[in-house]
């Protein structure tokens, strides 16, 4: 795989995304909701609404909120990955691209990076805003800055693995889909297991502490490797030209 070639594809994709405001909105909306919306809700619950939320619950609430960064990492790349591949399929722009000297691996790597980079940047920026706002809102009540901490650190470590898994699954899904919406809908089903983990932790089946989150990151990394080989097997010139419909 050649990084220069892959990066050229990334640059092309970024230029196209810039013209597609819907793709940008879909990418920025969720990190903004998590990064700004959740701290505002927490602030409202702590200081207004008759101070209905006890201060002691703040750490568990923040922990639950932060898990949404992993869920976001699964959901957001769906919009870009499916657009990136099914969009090229719909525009029939894959065949001329495949006729260039780039290898299948270069194209696949370019597509993966272009689908990963914007969501990850948006999520990391969202997490910085999330930490800053929550520290601002909770400092007086807790008497210390809650963030940064190891739990969110583990979330931020797991995030790219979750996003990569999402992109790889979407590449496989996109190979069987002919319209962007269907690819996005099917690809976004990947979020269900993550929601399941989140609900299980909320129901106290286990705690999403640093150790467990690192284990989850490890599982995701293993799945990433396995899915990379599956998506690489799917992303073959001949397959794309003769079997992708």
């Amino acid at each position: 795989m050649d990084l220069h070639n892959a990066w050229t594809i990334v640059q092309k994709d970024f230029k196209v995304y810039r013209k597609k405001s819907s793709v940008i909105y879909a990418t920025v909306a969720l990190p903004l909701i998590i990064g700004v919306g959740f701290p505002l809700i927490l602030n409202y619950a702590l200081h207004r609404a008759n101070k209905m939320t006890p201060v002691a619950t703040v750490p568990s609430l923040l922990g639950a909120f932060s898990i949404w960064f992993i869920i976001g990492a699964v959901v957001i790349p769906t919009a870009i990955a499916s657009y990136s591949l099914v969009g090229e399929k719909v525009q029939k722009s894959l065949e001329p691209l495949l006729a260039t000297p780039m290898s299948d691996g270069d194209i696949l790597l370019g597509k993966i990076i272009s689908a990963l980079l914007i969501p990850l940047v948006a999520l990391y920026v969202g997490s910085i805003i999330f930490m800053a706002l929550n520290d601002y809102f909770t400092y007086k009540l807790l008497g210390f800055f809650y963030y940064p901490n190891w739990q969110l650190g583990a979330v931020l470590i797991a995030m790219p693995f979750a996003a990569l898994l999402s992109v790889e699954v979407n590449i496989i899904v996109s190979s069987r889909m002919t319209d962007i919406r269907s690819a996005q809908q099917l690809g976004s089903l990947l979020v269900l297991p993550f929601i399941g983990v989140f609900l299980a932790s909320e129901l106290n089946f286990f705690t999403l502490n640093f150790n467990n989150l690192i284990i989850i990151a490890g599982i995701l990394a293993t799945l990433d490797i396995a899915m990379f080989f599956v998506s690489k097997a799917t992303f073959q010139r001949e397959e794309i030209l003769t079997k992708w419909r």
């Binding site: 070639n5 050229t8 092309k12 525009q91 894959l94 065949e95 260039t100």
Partner: peptide
Amino acid sequence: PENVGLYEELSPYDNLDFYGRY
């Protein structure tokens, strides 16, 4: 190819430029 497959959102300059880079 039979279907031209240009990047419709991009200008002709950018279309040719990216292929030049490829």
